[in-house]
Design a protein around this nucleic acid. Structure first.
Lengths: 339, 339
DNA sequence: TTTGCATCCGAAAACGTTTTCGATTTTTTA
DNA sequence: TAAAAAATCGAAAACGTTTTCGGATGCAAA
């Protein structure tokens, strides 16, 4: 019941370990005859290379690390899906870590991935991350790094993103185009840039269309979840009776708002129109179905790994690699929560 | 810019590699003085053990594999969450693979994990998996294995599950208790045992409460998603006008049904009561909110890794380990889709 | 002084692979 | 037939760690 090794095969065939190794990897300096022999014996014994030894020798693990803020999250799980599918195609495995939106944890996990000597790292930052020393360290060690969605401009690496500002602009414009005159915004916390950008897109759209920006119409949801959507909607109803549109930073927030309106008999979209953001699965399943911006999670994951793969390949061949920034396309999804 | 190794430290201090290694691991046969010296130097040079060499030497990777049918799925992502959190606590990393409900892919991925020499494997089977040769192989190789949720009885390993049959019984009984007389069931495909068990629980509940089982009230959703819920509900409305309750195999199916009733002006729960299954996040966010059975995904993940960890530990110490089966508690969640 | 006993250290083997480089054999060319 | 070229193979080093086992040293007990 011993492990099958190159040595084992070599002894069985009466040849050297070197030749066995080279035969299995199709080196040109071993004859067809011995190659066939070796391969046959390897198959017979069900030889599987010891990946630990290979790693040690080649200094690579064919494994990459992924850090995301949350696993239980439609958008991020879509990204994960895109990443692991693509990675598997290229023979890479993915180690997934969850930062729980905590900077401290994120830092620790970067260290963990470094010590595990992954071949590359993909990350979407925690909201609280501003200090980027740990990421700089990754770059300094020469480990390929790709950031997606929640990025930091301070670090010079490849980035896969959407244009949050433009998408928010489109969302707001859709409300304006459909006749809304007084549009509220349920924004996210102050910190992640995405939250800021969406707010700026909202503001810009108003200004471009002759609607004065009114900061009292902006509500902050520090956690962009269902409950905060409920709270914001309730507060909004107290503060302003005549609002006829809402652009929510996230589908979940929008859905929270809708549930409030449903309960109070306020008709969506007749009395008030609502736009979400992300096109989570859930947004097509509620009543009324939610108009939103499609944020291509799966595609983002795919592109993220592809970019990382290119960078890893370049590194392996000692070629230089210039970081790229890829901005993915978002689309307006018109459903029944807007006119 | 060379890697810092034990050798490096040893040379700097003029001692042997052996002593350095032992000092860092607090072996008793190295003096306090040299220990302090070594540790200081290690810290100074920012020494990090080469995990590849450690793996090769110790034959362990401190990495475990996880195969699930789908990543973008509330329940499974909750499980993932529980697993990686627990794993990280114990110093293990998790490699996640997605079988896409494909038996072939599942088999390939098992091979992949074996060849990567993970220390243990956790899996929830693809629906189509009946042949379990690949899992037997895992057992035969002595790799600790834990199955959860979608399991096979044919394989002797630890299992973390819920009692689908009992939970379905509870769900159906709740409909009966709240006054429903004619209860339909939207079941899943023929294959995964969970689908069968939920069906059996439904049937048993009817029989125990003096309601004759009527197979024409059972609709099959081969994919348990939103669209199939819509289809089943529409078909049901054509076939039977007087149904007053539905037990759907999954929240998503139930929500599809609700959307149909909402559209047609059929009142839930006044005209018809609906029970889901799983307590996905979404079920509390729709209108009316969905009564369902809580399936503890996070806890399942936690227990799954904990059990695996015990088994890995036993193996490391050459102790025997008897597989355990843990049945987690499910709870009836009463919301507004039932009376 | 010898013996016994801790205490501390290091040589060396081992884990299994990859790859360089030189040696040997075979084939081709002059 | 000899020399050159090509084809084929293998010895050995290297990757960085862990762990066994024996040696050295010092000290107390006999």
């Amino acid at each position: 019941m011993k492990e099958v090794t190159l040595k084992q095969i070599a002894e069985n065939l009466g040849i050297s370990i070197t030749t066995v190794s080279k035969a299995l990897k199709n080196y040109p300096d071993v004859s067809k005859k011995t190659k066939a022999l070796v391969k046959q014996e390897a198959k017979k014994l069900q030889y599987k290379p010891n990946v630990f030894a290979v790693n040690l020798r080649t200094k690579r693990s064919k494994t990459v690390g992924l850090i995301i803020p949350e696993v239980v999250h439609h958008f991020f799980s879509s990204v994960v899906n895109g990443i692991i599918e693509q990675a598997e195609k290229k023979g890479y495995l993915v180690i997934i870590l969850q930062s729980n939106e905590s900077f401290k944890l994120e830092k620790k996990q970067i260290d963990l991935l470094i010590s595990k000597r992954v071949d590359g790292i993909m990350i979407s930052l925690a909201s609280s991350t501003t200090d980027i020393g740990h990421l700089q360290q990754v770059k300094d060690l020469g480990i390929p790094l790709v950031m997606f969605d929640k990025i930091s401009k301070l670090i010079n690496c490849s980035k896969i993103i959407i244009n949050d500002r433009e998408a928010a602009y489109t969302a707001t414009k859709h409300l304006i185009d459909s006749g809304c005159k007084k549009i509220a915004h349920f924004r996210g916390a102050l910190l992640p840039q995405n939250s800021i950008d969406r707010f700026l897109g909202y503001k810009k759209a108003l200004e471009d269309h002759g609607i004065a920006f009114d900061s009292s119409l902006v509500y902050r949801c520090d956690r962009v979840d269902y409950e905060n959507g409920i709270d914001a909607a309730q507060q909004l109803l107290e503060d302003h009776e005549d609002v006829d549109g809402i652009f929510a930073i996230t589908d979940l927030v929008a859905i929270g708002a809708i549930s409030v309106f449903n309960q109070r008999g306020i008709k969506v979209p007749d009395d008030i129109s609502i736009m979400g953001f992300s096109n989570w699965f859930i947004s097509s399943a509620i009543t009324p179905s939610l108009s939103t911006i499609d944020q291509p999670g799966y595609e983002m994951g795919k592109q993220t790994f592809k970019t990382l793969h290119k960078e890893m390949k370049a590194k392996r061949n000692d070629e230089s690699f210039d970081p790229v920034t890829r901005v993915l396309h978002t689309a307006l999804i018109k459903r029944n929560s807007t006119k």
